[in-house]
Amino acid sequence: MTGIVSYELNDGVARIVMDDGKANVMSLAMLQALDAAFDRAAADRAIVVLSSARPGVFSAGFDLKVFAAGDPGASLAMVRAGAELALKLFTFPQPILGVCRGHAFPMGAFLLLGSDLRLGEAGDYRMGLNEVAIGIAVPSFALELARARLHPAWLNRTATTGEMYGPADAVRAGFLDRLVPATDLDAAAETAVAALKQVHRPSHALVKQRLRGEAAARIRAAIDAELTPAAYAARHRPEPVA
């Protein structure tokens, strides 16, 4: 697999790397490529390391140009693909290590929230749920995902005000698990992978299901209730002119 998403399998570890040549915008094409990569990792029963090849950015989030174009069908297809991908990561039967070297705007942040262990590079960048700051309500699937991984006070701040967090606060909030100096991040990732290889996989999958099953059901229900053509069109219908 090549192009905007690469896939490399070695010694039971699947390295999935995003690189669209710019800011890893979560277009429908990017989301579909990531979805296919995770399906391949599931078939390979591999530990996943998810990262970006772009310096200073993990992902710029959903493609705002699609929203701005005013095509509800295209917007729905993109958002639903993102929601399904986030749920896939959240319930993935193998361990996922997310490696973040830069900005993670909402859909990028959702990928980190779906990962099991998240390493962040120490640096000057931001992540969070900034939708309300740009005129978008945070989708319910994302709120349920964030509710399962973020500390409540920090979730309320980012979801209701659009506040974005620097790396240290991202750890406190729950977007990341720990920070590592840039020069040590690759070595730290390899150490983390070595530790994940010691995890008993059937137990990992069972505990993940027990721990996340109720939240996963709420995410599934939110997708099925909100991300349908009728529901999406109703919420995005233009206001009547007075």
Rank of each mutant, 00 (worst) to 15 (best):
V132E: 11
A234R: 10
K197Y: 06
V25F: 13
T161Y: 04
P95Q: 12
V132W: 05
D186Y: 02
G120W: 11
G70C: 13
A81Y: 09
A137S: 13
T183H: 13
T160L: 13
P238A: 14
E214W: 12
P240N: 07
D116F: 11
P167F: 03
K65G: 15
F92N: 06
V49P: 01
F92Y: 05
P152L: 11
T2P: 04
G174R: 13
R210E: 05
A217P: 01
F38W: 07
L179W: 06
G98S: 14
G162F: 06
V171K: 07
P55G: 06
A216Q: 00
A77Y: 08
I96F: 02
E190N: 07
A148R: 12
F58P: 06
A133F: 11
D71N: 13
H204W: 14
V48E: 02
L155D: 04
I47F: 01
D20F: 11
A146C: 10
L117Q: 15
M18H: 08
P167E: 02
D124N: 14
L76P: 13
V17F: 10
H200Q: 13
R172N: 04
F62G: 14
L179E: 02
R220L: 01
I134M: 03
A104R: 03
A173T: 06
V25T: 14
P238H: 13
V57M: 11
S6A: 12
R218D: 04
L64Q: 15
G21H: 07
L145A: 03
V25Y: 10
Q209W: 00
R210V: 00
L119V: 05
R54C: 02
L179R: 09
L206V: 05
V132P: 10
G12A: 08
L31Y: 03
S51C: 04
P95H: 10
P72S: 07
S51F: 01
E84S: 06
E226H: 03
R178T: 12
R218C: 00
I96Y: 08
A43M: 14
K22F: 12
P181F: 06
G21S: 10
G3V: 12
E163Y: 10
K197P: 09
T91A: 00
P202K: 01
L89H: 14
R218G: 00
A109E: 10
A41P: 05
G213Q: 00
T183A: 14
P229V: 04
